[in-house]
Every structure is written in structure tokens, then in C-alpha cells.
Design a protein around this nucleic acid. Structure first.
Length: 569
RNA sequence: CGGGGUAUGGCGCAGUCUGGUAGCGCGCCUGCUUCGGGAGCAGGAGGUCGUGAGUUCAAAUCUCGCUACCCCGACCA
């Protein structure tokens, strides 16, 4: 392509609305334009990178035996009512009506539609396993979109769905997808980790996330120098050293703590509490009900772990202020397990706690000298807290933390949707059973942002060859016909040899052209000038390393090809 | 949904307190000179100042309402 036809629109200044480096660079490079909150247009350069990512994904999905389909973005409410999600999905689902007053939604995901296809089209177990995928625009009405395409409302996703006759088959399909994902992210060149993840509301038995490492990521990975890596909220905490619980040494007494609402304030107020002896109480509500969870004052609650409690159930969230006030009779900051009407579940690390401090369930008061078994019933203990850096991970090594951007997630779904929507198949034993499903997502547009977050420098984007909008840019310097002619034929030769090439034909001055090409992140730059042309050569510069070398003009396409080939694994 | 902020040309901003000619930088157009790391000079185009009402002789500026966008929090298969 010629730069003159690409509507290249770079800016020197960093746009005010961009928080993240990647977002700012995408806007500066003219890849993207925001239309409304969380809704973007992709401009020619940006779209080329999107398409290159799609192509890698498509090739690997096809290689893995998945078949591409295209499902509608707008979906009838009936299907969602059938799966039950019309009621439970919440405001993130964009709902609308057609002219006849019939209800629809803009698809945030496609389990319902694909299950409908499978139940109609899969007629024999002999057609299984079956894996259908699409690359398509999704819409999720996020409360607060942010960080450009990192968390947008409309985005491009590859979603795949596998159907198997039984659990063993589903497990094989899952593994095939997992392998495909590893190939995809390796080919793109992202620095990423595969971590065990929460199955969340989508249900199912097992899930892993693919996280691109980046400080701006919203997920935290707990990992070790060994193979261990899990989403932090799922990392099992090392069991407490089996200390004997000391006998109660103090009498329980209530004392006034005006204005004290946090553990830190309590600590200050009392004048220093042993970390193990202050307890915080959090009221959590999920699908199954509410419970009072107590944790050491310095620990953080994992809502994912709370969701696994039978008393709480899926979707655990901190209870509303009103609910707490009505149930307990006190507000946040004065809650405690003594005399609590809700089930009390204690973090395992509290098993040996004695003579502790906690809220009194009366505003402005706390209790001291509280002991399990004496002042309140012996609670049930469970692993509730978020693991912290340095503690012993399940593989015995010290736990480390790193942030990551979720670029893919794969689920073993089980029969949640096939059961609800009667997507059944008769086995070779003449018994009708729901198909066992898996679903597999990749955030195509989010990968663009994640990659730029990983690959940039002061001058701009440093795209890997895998997803760069162009592999090579040919830049003629000077206006002589000879230079233009040489640049044109070099451009043609490169294209002919199958290398995606940009001809920088906008007639920019050298400095401006260099700056633009650096900003756009094109991996290889070939400069044709009168100087080099006189020697029959062309100057090559690698964006990644900055290394400059002179190539024989006639030989340049072959040499560039060789450089590309050398990098392939 | 709670808290904070912003809205002036394609982009970044000043002007608002103290009402009176809409301004600067980048970019864009024309010309001349220049031409290997964002050139110089000269000339020029482009804005119903988010929106609706009000106050006033007069509103970007003051008052009230609305909307959009950004940030923090909550939320997020």
C-alpha cells in the first residue's frame, strides 16, 4: 500500500484522554478514533493489525479442526430466556426492541445461539466432536469503559464452542484448544502466562486464562519460579503453621471506639494491636445467600473463594449498606462475629487466634478479648483470603505476583447450556444425553492494546513482525526521478515476493518521515536516497534493534526475506 | 450508582474569577528558500465557544437545567 492512500494521521502531542501508553500511541499513530464511550472506529493502519491478529487466530483455529461460522450480533430474547440468562445477565446486556415490540439483545457472547445451531444441526454422535468458531463484534455495556480498546464496550472477539458426546471428549477438545491458544500467542510473540482461573458465572468445571504480562493489567497472577501460575484470587493460601490455639487469657469486653471504621483506625485507637489479633468482618451475598466472613485485619478477601462457599454461592459481592444495617443493626466498620445472625465463616489463618479485637455490631463500639468457643460458637473455617507475595505456593516455592491483561480464556463448560436448551444427542447406546460443551474466547482488539503495551519505546510502537500493519516500509528520500523510480521498483519487488510493504510516498521531509515510521512501529525500514543509490545500495534499519546496514539494491527483497525467516522459530 | 473533573477549529491548550473585537502552539492550504531525525520566512483557510433556558444594552465569561466525555471507587461470562 501507499502511505498516501492510508489516511495516515499522526500527532505529536499525547491525547489528553489517554491514560495508558498503548492507548496514547494508538491515537497518536492514527490507528483508532473514539466515537463514544467505549466505542471505536478502526482506521486503516489499526485495522491492518487487527486483521493480522485475526489471520493468525483463524489459521490456528482451522489447524485445530474448528470450523468458522458467523452468528448474528442481534439475538432474540427467547433464546436467552431459554438458557435463563435473560433474567440473570444484568445491565451489561444491551437490550432493545424491534418495531413490533419484540425483545432482542446485542450479543455479549454466543453460547445460546451456537447451542441452538448445534441442537438443530448435529444429528448423530458421529458428527462429534464439533467445534464452531467466529470472529465477530461483541457488545457488553460496561459500567465504566476505560483504557481505550483494553476495556471497551464494543470489541472484536474470537469465540469458539466445542460439542462432545461425553466428558472425556470434552476434555480432549479443551486440550486441543489450549494447544491452539499456546500456538496463537506464541506466534504473536506476546509475553504471557496461562493461569488457572475462576469459572465464574459461565459455569463449568475448569477454566484457564491467558494473560499478557503488563503492569497496567487488571488481573493479578500468582506464580512461582516453577510451573505454578494461577489467578491470584484462586491461589490457595498456605495452611497456617499448626499452632495450638492459646487458652483465652482475657475477658471479653465492649469498649467505645467513636469514629473508628477501619482496622488501621482501630489499631491507632487502641495503640497497636498484634496483627493476628484484629479481625475484620465482611458481609457477603451470593446466589445461595449471605454470610459473615471474618479475616485477619491485614488480609484481603477473595470474592472468588467466597463464591465457592455453599452458604454464599456464585457471584459473591460485598453486601449493600442497607442490607447490613437491617440484618446486623450496625454499619460497616463496627461489624463482628459475636451475636451474628448470619452464618459465620472464618479464614483458616484464624484457627489459632485468641483474645482478638473485632466490631461489636453496634455503631461506635468494638470488642476486645474475644475467643472462639467461649464468646461465640466455634466457626467453620475456610480459605478466604487473597494470598500474598512471599508465602509458600502450592508447589512449595515462594509465591510471586505480577499483573496481566486477559487476552484469552478457555472453559470446560459441561452441560450447562446443552441441558437448559435441550441440545441432546443419542449415543451409540441409544440413550439421549446433553452434549458436553466448551467455550474459548480471544479478545482480538484487546490483543492490539496488550501488544503495544509490551512493545513500545520513546519513539513509539515497536510492532513484532507477526502483527505489524506492514513488515517493511520503503522510504524514498529526495525528489529525483531516479530515487522515486528505484523506490517504486523496490516496492514492487517486495510486494511480489509476498512481503507486506508500505511505500512512504507522501513526500515528507526526512525527519518527519523517520518519526512517523518509528511511531507506527513498522519493523523494517528501507531508505532509498541518491547517496545510497549511487552505490547501488539501499539502507536497512531494524525498528526493534536500531541496527543499520547497507543492502545491495537488487538483492534487498531476498535479504529482507532472509531476515524474516531467521526469526521464525 | 457514589465522588471528582472537563467541554473553545482535526489535535493540545489559554481566555471565564473581574461580561464588551475569540486567541496561541501543532496540523492544514499557497508561495519562496530549504531538504538524512518532526525546517525557515511570508501569506491564508478553518470555530453557532457541548446544549437549552434565563439575567443583561451586551454572555465563551454570570445563573439554572440538561447532555457528553475523562478520572477514582463499586462492578466486570
Amino acid at each position: 500500500m501507499r502511505a498516501s492512500s492510508l489516511l495516515i494521521n499522526t500527532t505529536r502531542e499525547r491525547p489528553a484522554e489517554a491514560e495508558l501508553t498503548s492507548h496514547a500511541l494508538m491515537l497518536r499513530a492514527g490507528m483508532l478514533r473514539q466515537l463514544a464511550s467505549g466505542i471505536f472506529s478502526w482506521l486503516p493502519l489499526g485495522l491492518r493489525t487487527v486483521r493480522r491478529i485475526e489471520q493468525i487466530v483463524r489459521e490456528e483455529m482451522n489447524r485445530a479442526g474448528a470450523a468458522e461460522i458467523m452468528m448474528p450480533a442481534v439475538q432474540p430474547a427467547e433464546l436467552w430466556q431459554e438458557s435463563g440468562r435473560w433474567q440473570i445477565y444484568g445491565p451489561e446486556l444491551l437490550r432493545l426492541e424491534d418495531r413490533h415490540g419484540r425483545a432482542y439483545c446485542v450479543g455479549p457472547t454466543h453460547e445460546e445461539v451456537v447451542t441452538d445451531i448445534a441442537r438443530a444441526c448435529v444429528r448423530s454422535w458421529r458428527q462429534l466432536p464439533c467445534n464452531l468458531y467466529q470472529i465477530q463484534t461483541k457488545f457488553r455495556d460496561e459500567v465504566r469503559p476505560r483504557f481505550g480498546v483494553m476495556r471497551s464496550r464494543e470489541f472484536v472477539m474470537k469465540d469458539a464452542y466445542s460439542f462432545d458426546a461425553d466428558a472425556a471428549g470434552a476434555k480432549r477438545s479443551y486440550q486441543i484448544m489450549r494447544d491452539a491458544y499456546v500456538r496463537i500467542f506464541d506466534r504473536i510473540g506476546l509475553d504471557y502466562r496461562v493461569v488457572e482461573a475462576d469459572v465464574g458465572a459461565i459455569g463449568g468445571s475448569f477454566s484457564e486464562e491467558f494473560l499478557a504480562l503488563a503492569d497496567c493489567g487488571e488481573a493479578v497472577i500468582g506464580y512461582t519460579d516453577g510451573d505454578y501460575a494461577t489467578n491470584l484470587e484462586q491461589v490457595p493460601c498456605s495452611p497456617p503453621a499448626a499452632a495450638q490455639r492459646p487458652d483465652p487469657g482475657e475477658k471479653m469486653e465492649e469498649f467505645a471506639t467513636p469514629g473508628v471504621a477501619t482496622i488501621d483506625e482501630l489499631d491507632q485507637f487502641v495503640g497497636g494491636i498484634d496483627p493476628g489479633r484484629s479481625i475484620k468482618t465482611m458481609i457477603v451475598t451470593g446466589e445461595a445467600g449471605s454470610a459473615a466472613l471474618i479475616l485477619p485485619g491485614n488480609a484481603e478477601l477473595s470474592l472468588a473463594k467466597a463464591s465457592r462457599l455453599e452458604q454464599v454461592g456464585f457471584g459473591a459481592a460485598l453486601a449493600e449498606d442497607d442490607f447490613v444495617r437491617k440484618t446486623v443493626g450496625a454499619g460497616f466498620g463496627s461489624l463482628g462475629p459475636v451475636g451474628m445472625s448470619l452464618p459465620v465463616i472464618a479464614d483458616a489463618s484464624l484457627a489459632s487466634a485468641a483474645d482478638f479485637f473485632c466490631g461489636a455490631n453496634r455503631d461506635g463500639y468494638h470488642l476486645r478479648g474475644v475467643n472462639f468457643g467461649r464468646d461465640l460458637p466455634e466457626p467453620r473455617f475456610a480459605d478466604l483470603r487473597m494470598a500474598v507475595a512471599g508465602e509458600v505456593a502450592p508447589d512449595g516455592r515462594p509465591l510471586k505476583l505480577r499483573r496481566g491483561i486477559e487476552v484469552g480464556q478457555i472453559f470446560n463448560l459441561g452441560t450447562k447450556y446443552s441441558q437448559a436448551m435441550a441440545a441432546r444427542i443419542e449415543g451409540d447406546d441409544n440413550v439421549l444425553r446433553p452434549m458436553v460443551m466448551g467455550c474459548y474466547g480471544i479478545g482480538i482488539t484487546r490483543i492490539v492494546a496488550a501488544a503495544i503495551e509490551q512493545f513500545n519505546d520513546e519513539a513509539g510502537i515497536v510492532f513484532p513482525e507477526s502483527i505489524a500493519p506492514f513488515i517493511v516500509a520503503v522510504l524514498p528520500l529526495g525528489k529525483s526521478p531516479e530515487v522515486m523510480q528505484a523506490a517504486e521498483s523496490l516496492y514492487a519487488a517486495l510486494n511480489e515476493s509476498g512481503i507486506d510493504c508500505l511505500l512512504e510516498d507522501r513526500g515528507l521531509r526526512a525527519g518527519a518521515a523517520f518519526a512517523d515510521l518509528d511511531l507506527l512501529g513498522i519493523p523494517h525500514r528501507l531508505v532509498v536516497s541518491e547517496r545510497s543509490l549511487a552505490a547501488g545500495k539501499v539502507e536497512h534499519k531494524a525498528r526493534h534493534t536500531g541496527a543499520v546496514s547497507m543492502l545491495e539494491m537488487a538483492d534487498a527483497p531476498a535479504q529482507v526475506r532472509a531476515m524474516l525467516a531467521a526469526k521464525k522459530p
